[in-house]
Simulated assay, not measured.
Amino acid sequence: MLELKHISKRFGQSKQFAVQDVSFSIPEHEVFALVGESGSGKSTLAEFIVGLQQPTEGSIFWRGAPIQLQAHLQRHEQSRQVQIVFQNPDRSLNPYWKIKDIIAEPLILNKWTKLASQRKVEELLERVRLPHELLERLPTECSGGQKQRIAIARALALEPELLIADEITSALDPITERDILSLLSELKRDHNMSFLFITHRLETIRGFADAIAVMKNGMLLEMGATEDVLQHPANAYTKSLIEACYDDYA
């Protein structure tokens, strides 16, 4: 469904790379996890996919079509099929808008009627397990977990086929994190969605991701089925990430 081929990004005119020669693909209905420390290039790749940045080299394909080269209307259609939820909802949610208006924004921009938008917003709120009384609140009146669910609801408004979750549980407590992962698992199961899940913590994706790619310093070091990588890591850096998980829970 989504394929990245030999993606690189240089810093300006220098020979230094933010991302260097990264290739992977995400099949339909699967969860693909990008794992690595901060600054490894994970979020940069996500920004390439949704068009917030352009790579210096390489190509990105959506269902066989190179998305960087598509015409504006084609690019708009692709952007409806791929949505992203960012790490910090305090920066991605307008603090002056009510929750109902935040979730409805992509619907209004796509010329939905007010009544149809209202019904869709109510449906989305149920889908992410939030009470309807939140609709009249501002983001500042919601908890961190609630704000992340609101961001997920907004991303689901146009029924994307692929959802990019960029470190969306990193600032949450363990119980809330587990609830968000359970929600994403339900979305995958009930709506046949695919996910690109970005995290620096390997323990978050066991039992959720179908495949893992491990990144460091802009390069992809190791990739494979989740349990294969976790049980038999081939790279020393991957082994260190796994050991850090055990240290965290010691």
Rank of each mutant, 00 (worst) to 15 (best):
L196V: 08
V128L: 02
L156R: 03
H191M: 11
I198A: 05
C142A: 10
I205D: 14
T140E: 07
S170M: 14
R206Y: 15
H191T: 02
A171N: 13
E177I: 02
P139T: 06
L220D: 09
V128W: 00
P174M: 04
P174T: 07
R137Q: 15
M215C: 10
R189P: 09
S143V: 08
L124V: 05
L183K: 04
L134A: 09
I175V: 15
R129S: 14
L130V: 08
D179F: 08
S185A: 14
I168A: 03
G224N: 10
R129M: 11
L162K: 02
N217Q: 15
A225M: 11
G145A: 10
L181F: 06
A211N: 09
L138N: 06
H200N: 11
A171D: 08
G145M: 08
S194T: 10
L202R: 10
H132V: 12
M223Q: 15
M219K: 14
S143H: 10
S182F: 11
S194G: 15
A211E: 08
R127D: 01
E161M: 01
E122P: 10
L221T: 15
G218T: 06
A209I: 03
F197G: 08
R149Y: 07
F208S: 14
L135K: 13
I168N: 03
N192S: 13
M193L: 15
A165D: 05
L135V: 10
S185P: 09
E203F: 07
E177F: 01
V121P: 12
L124I: 04
K120A: 11
Q118V: 00
L220R: 11
F208R: 12
T169A: 09
Q148I: 08
P160Q: 00
S143F: 06
T169G: 08
L163A: 00
A157M: 02
T199E: 11
R129N: 15
P131T: 07
S194H: 09
T140G: 13
F208H: 11
A225V: 14
A209W: 06
G218M: 05
R129Y: 05
G207S: 12
R149V: 05
F208G: 12
A151E: 10
A209M: 04
A151C: 13
A213M: 07
F195R: 00
S182W: 07
P160F: 00
S117K: 08
L163D: 00
K216S: 15
I168L: 06
E133C: 09
K147T: 03
A211I: 00
D190A: 08
R137T: 10
T140H: 13
L134K: 03
L196Y: 02
A157D: 04
E222A: 15
I150F: 09
E167M: 05
R119K: 13
E177P: 03
